[in-house]
């Protein structure tokens, strides 16, 4: 269902963001190519989530600009960016806990079908919504959990749902903020396979602490420390980079 061969790369140009005395992004530039997984790694507090917030429109950068699909989207609202095909997931699971799993996925499908000023017909009895929603749940492996309340799912399943919600908006580009957080090794492997398959149809910015996942998936890696890009390149280049090894890989892969 993805659009034709438009140039859908995502680019950050010289982003600055300051929280009081803390510089969370300093002259941060990067370019994520369509059809690639671009991983962003860095120690805790490096500013990875801040970057996702800025790219998705939840935080306004103090200066700098963001370009998506050839357009400057710096001033575009968060919902506006999703409507253009740029969707995100959250590091801290952010599903609708009181909703069933199916309802969680129906809502984004409803969103992509246009406005929701429809006051009468039941959304959950509309096959135009529940059909695609069920298909997507099958795809991500939550098919048999459709009627369960999201708040009652196991942690790993909630992480799957987190991604399913983002996918249901039918994005061309995904911003994934630590999708593996808190998952077991088994679930981890399944998710790596799943994201690997998604690569064919979606651009992806992947924030991840799990370096096995990063090196398994990434075509390009950007390393962030204290809000600055200290290195960016192909995985083998990053692996060899001395500065990266001392600043980051050294402590994780001793």
């Amino acid at each position: 269902m993805t659009d034709g061969p438009r140039d859908l790369h995502l680019e950050a140009r010289g982003l600055h963001k300051r929280f009081g005395g803390l510089q969370a992004a300093t002259d941060l530039s990067m370019r994520a190519q369509q059809g690639e997984v671009h991983a962003v790694i860095g120690p805790n507090g490096a500013g990875k989530t801040t970057l996702v917030h800025m790219l998705s429109g939840f935080l306004r950068p103090d200066s700098g600009s963001i370009v998506f699909g050839g357009d400057d989207i710096t001033g575009l609202s968060a919902p506006g960016r999703v409507q253009r095909g740029l969707a995100r997931s959250f590091q801290i699971t952010s599903v609708f806990r009181e909703f069933t799993v199916l309802e969680n996925v129906v809502l984004p499908i409803q969103a992509r079908q246009g406005h929701s000023f429809r006051f009468w017909q039941s959304a959950m009895r509309d096959p135009g919504l529940t059909g695609p929603a069920r298909a997507l749940l099958e795809e991500v492996g939550l098919g048999d959990r459709a009627a369960t309340r999201a708040g009652h799912l196991a942690h790993g399943e909630q992480r799957q749902l987190e991604i399913a919600i983002a996918l249901a908006t039918n994005p061309s580009f995904l911003l994934l903020d630590e999708p593996m957080a808190g998952m077991g090794p088994e679930e981890n492997r399944a998710l790596i396979d799943f994201l690997g398959a998604l690569k064919k149809t979606h651009g992806m910015l992947l924030i991840e602490h799990d370096l096995d996942a990063v090196f398994a998936l990434a075509d390009r890696i950007t390393v962030l420390v204290y809000g600055r890009v200290i290195a960016s390149g192909r995985p083998d280049e990053i692996r060899r980079n001395r500065e990266v090894r001392t600043a980051y890989l050294g402590e994780a892969h001793a």
Binding site: A78, A87, L107
Partner: peptide, 22 residues
């Protein structure tokens, strides 16, 4: 209705509804 879905979802987690494009 669809309207009610948005309303209830926004009560539950307004940020996420916006992150869905609404």
């Amino acid at each position: 209705s669809r309207f009610g879905m948005v309303l209830r979802a926004s009560q539950s987690n307004d940020t996420r509804v916006q992150a869905i494009g609404i």
